[in-house]
Amino acid sequence: MTVRRRTVHHTLRASALSLSLLTALSCAHAFDIDVRGEYRTGSEQYRSRVKVVNVWQNGFGASLEAGIFNGQGSIDSFRSDYNEIEAWYAVPVSETVTLLPGGVLTWNTNGSIIKPYLRANWMFYPTWRADARVRYDHANYDSVTRRGMPAGQVHSNNDSAWQLDFFLTKFIDKTAIEYNYAWNKKDDSQFVYNNGRNTQYLHNLKATYTLQPNLLPYAEVAYMGNTADLMNDKNEWRLRLGLISRF
């Protein structure tokens, strides 16, 4: 009962924060709406996402997004997958280097996860940019696993993890091509990803085209390794199509 009350408390607090952020975004002079669809080949899962984001002239930025699970094997579902708030602040270090400390609050039916991070980008050439980010994901609820435990016993922990990202972006006229490498590691080795290990990685390639100043379609393809299911060795490829509308 105590765990349930704590989960409800975190959910209500996160909902209040999301409402406050949405109100602030609606009062801003301009913002982006990012709508995206996704398919994962190994696990055969369909997902979608809607995101509202705004960056103010003082360097502060914030976003609110809602993830939706649309089914496995076919698009036959429309249920909440997660909700997320992100906020960051741009700190110029020089004409070409910027630091962006920030944080993410994600919540779902289990509870909430706090994800503080530090990101830096470097415009090392007029048409090239490199970014690096380190993030720590701390769950405010315990997860349970039976993996590696004696029969009838379970292991419980908050299942926190580290994530390291590297981004390399090339700008060509109206097109931006971005490569992203991400590496994740569980704090507790008892908890594993779907590949059966406590580490996993991702290679992602994204292309964004400025169709009009206020319309930016994009496509992504990512290789996620053998992460489809603990019971098989399928490779997981993630395909995404999206559109950013600017107002």
Score class of each variant (00 low, 15 high):
residue 77 S to Y: 15
residue 70 N to M: 15
residue 121 N to F: 15
residue 135 R to C: 09
residue 5 R to P: 09
residue 89 Y to Q: 08
residue 55 V to A: 11
residue 83 N to Q: 15
residue 145 T to Q: 02
residue 109 T to W: 14
residue 139 A to I: 05
residue 27 C to I: 12
residue 238 R to V: 04
residue 17 L to F: 13
residue 155 H to G: 00
residue 156 S to E: 04
residue 170 K to F: 05
residue 173 D to I: 04
residue 84 E to H: 05
residue 232 N to T: 11
residue 15 S to F: 09
residue 18 S to Q: 11
residue 197 R to H: 15
residue 129 R to F: 02
residue 79 R to S: 13
residue 123 M to N: 15
residue 109 T to H: 15
residue 178 E to S: 11
residue 119 R to L: 13
residue 172 I to W: 12
residue 14 A to N: 09
residue 184 N to A: 10
residue 193 Y to H: 11
residue 93 V to F: 14
residue 186 K to A: 03
residue 42 G to R: 05
residue 217 P to K: 01
residue 227 T to N: 04
residue 181 Y to E: 05
residue 15 S to D: 06
residue 176 A to W: 00
residue 107 W to S: 07
residue 91 V to M: 05
residue 138 H to I: 04
residue 29 H to E: 15
residue 130 A to Q: 05
residue 119 R to P: 03
residue 13 R to L: 10
residue 55 V to Y: 07
residue 81 D to R: 06
residue 169 T to C: 00
residue 206 K to R: 04
residue 188 D to A: 01
residue 2 T to H: 14
residue 238 R to Q: 12
residue 66 A to M: 09
residue 222 A to P: 06
residue 181 Y to H: 09
residue 88 W to R: 04
residue 40 R to Y: 02
residue 194 N to C: 02
residue 193 Y to K: 11
residue 9 H to M: 10
residue 188 D to Y: 02
residue 227 T to F: 04
residue 98 T to H: 11
residue 80 S to N: 14
residue 237 W to I: 08
residue 210 T to I: 04
residue 29 H to A: 06
residue 104 V to Q: 05
residue 23 T to L: 10
residue 135 R to H: 13
residue 120 A to I: 08
residue 75 I to G: 00
residue 86 E to Q: 13
residue 242 G to D: 05
residue 183 W to S: 11
residue 76 D to C: 05
residue 89 Y to H: 10
residue 114 I to L: 08
residue 30 A to M: 07
residue 167 F to K: 08
residue 43 S to Q: 09
residue 233 D to Q: 14
residue 4 R to I: 08
residue 3 V to R: 12
residue 105 L to Q: 07
residue 21 L to G: 09
residue 202 L to C: 06
residue 9 H to R: 15
residue 20 S to T: 07
residue 85 I to R: 13
residue 45 Q to S: 10
residue 247 F to I: 12
residue 51 K to L: 10
residue 148 G to C: 06
residue 9 H to L: 14
residue 92 P to V: 00
residue 245 S to Q: 06
residue 110 N to M: 02
residue 71 G to K: 01
residue 86 E to T: 09
residue 105 L to F: 06
residue 75 I to N: 07
residue 110 N to A: 12
residue 143 S to M: 13
residue 162 W to D: 06
residue 39 Y to E: 09
residue 83 N to H: 08
residue 192 V to D: 08
residue 192 V to G: 04
residue 107 W to D: 01
residue 56 W to A: 08
residue 233 D to I: 00
residue 80 S to D: 14
residue 95 E to Q: 15
residue 165 D to H: 14
residue 114 I to Y: 09
residue 161 A to K: 13
residue 35 V to L: 06
residue 184 N to V: 13
residue 26 S to K: 11
residue 54 N to S: 10
residue 208 T to E: 07
residue 78 F to Y: 15
residue 18 S to N: 06
residue 158 N to L: 00
residue 118 L to F: 11
residue 8 V to Y: 15
residue 112 S to K: 01
residue 183 W to L: 12
residue 130 A to F: 12
residue 160 S to G: 11
residue 176 A to R: 03
residue 166 F to A: 01
residue 135 R to F: 12
residue 188 D to N: 07
residue 199 T to H: 07
residue 124 F to V: 04
residue 78 F to C: 03
residue 158 N to D: 12
residue 186 K to H: 15
residue 206 K to M: 07
residue 170 K to N: 03
residue 234 K to E: 05
residue 115 K to H: 03
residue 80 S to V: 10
residue 54 N to F: 01
residue 25 L to K: 00
residue 32 D to K: 10
residue 141 Y to D: 02
residue 159 D to R: 07
residue 134 V to N: 02
residue 162 W to L: 10
residue 34 D to V: 05
residue 147 R to C: 02
residue 193 Y to C: 12
